[in-house]
């Protein structure tokens, strides 16, 4: 009986000794072999969102923080998902003046042409990838500027903010969008553009074709008829390259009325969508 107790005790003692010895070793190692981390990098990491989305051009948040801290990159505005809070934080750490007056920008698809509205030239049966389709005659749509609808932007979106809406057209959820602009980089037609989060209207068309051609290609395209710009001169619509472009800095009266008067319905009031 005593033998059994002794043997058990022996086991306990030896494991306890081993444990304390190794623990002591680790404690020494943690003190002596400690890798000093840059305090600035750590402080910056506290402000960066930690999404590792790559929109700043670096592999993740930490490499960007390192670049900022070492001074190899002086542009502190590169983190778009972080927004104003992140920018302020970085400014504080690096003791730099920041300008956070601009609104938060989000991406949106500027095209509402789809089945039944946009004409196609051929039946596309290939890869479900916009860039693959665009090298075949610029995609199946007769319009060269529109959304190809194959969803490459959805694939790259780190925030899962882009999806097909109830009409089967690609649409960005502005509440989910973090503004990283990855979708803009992948889109072959350039139909995704950044707008302020509080945008009231968009001209949902990207066609720079002449009005006649746009009309032949798509029933909801902007034909550059100038009604919005001429009837509502203060509303901020401007026609360039046969396409109406709406400004967001100066929002005069008649912006929503212009949407109503648009003959093809390509101006969309965002609250109503």
């Amino acid at each position: 009986m005593l033998d059994l107790i002794l043997r058990t005790l022996y086991g306990f003692i030896s494991v306890a000794f081993l444990g304390s010895a190794l623990g002591f070793g680790l404690a020494i190692a943690a003190k002596k072999l400690r890798v000093e981390k840059d305090k600035t990098v750590e402080a910056l990491m506290g402000h960066l969102p930690g999404l590792n989305c790559g929109s700043c051009g670096y592999a993740g948040c930490e490499p960007y923080a390192e670049a900022l801290s070492s001074g190899s990159d002086s542009d502190i505005t590169k983190c778009k998902p972080g927004g104003a809070a992140c920018l302020e934080g970085i400014g504080q750490v690096l003791e730099r003046e920041v300008d956070t007056s601009g609104p938060r920008m989000v991406a949106q698809v500027h095209c509402r042409g789809g089945e039944g509205t946009a004409e196609t030239r051929y039946r596309y049966k290939g890869l479900k990838d916009c860039n693959a389709a665009s090298i075949l005659f610029g995609g199946d749509k007769s319009c060269q500027y529109g959304c190809l609808g194959l969803g490459s932007c959805m694939q790259v979106c780190p925030a899962d903010a882009i999806d097909y809406d109830e009409q089967g057209l690609v649409w960005v959820d502005k509440n989910k969008c973090i503004g990283c602009e990855k979708c803009i980089a992948v889109c072959p037609t350039g139909v995704i553009k950044m707008i302020p989060e509080d945008a009231d209207v968009i001209v949902a068309c990207n066609s720079k074709d002449k009005g006649k051609d746009t009309k032949a290609n798509c029933s909801v395209g902007c034909i550059g008829c100038q009604i919005c710009a001429k009837k509502f001169p203060d509303a901020g619509y401007k026609i360039t390259d046969n396409l109406s472009i709406v400004g967001y800095n100066d929002r005069g009266p008649g912006r929503a009325d212009a949407a109503e008067k648009c003959p093809t319905g390509s101006i969309i009031v965002l609250d109503e969508k």
């Binding site: 290939g126 890869l127 990838d129 860039n131 693959a132 090298i135 075949l136």
Partner: peptide
């Protein structure tokens, strides 16, 4: 459609 994928990749 493997070839299409490669053409796209090369592009």
């Amino acid at each position: 459609p493997l070839v299409q994928s490669f053409r796209m990749g090369k592009n």
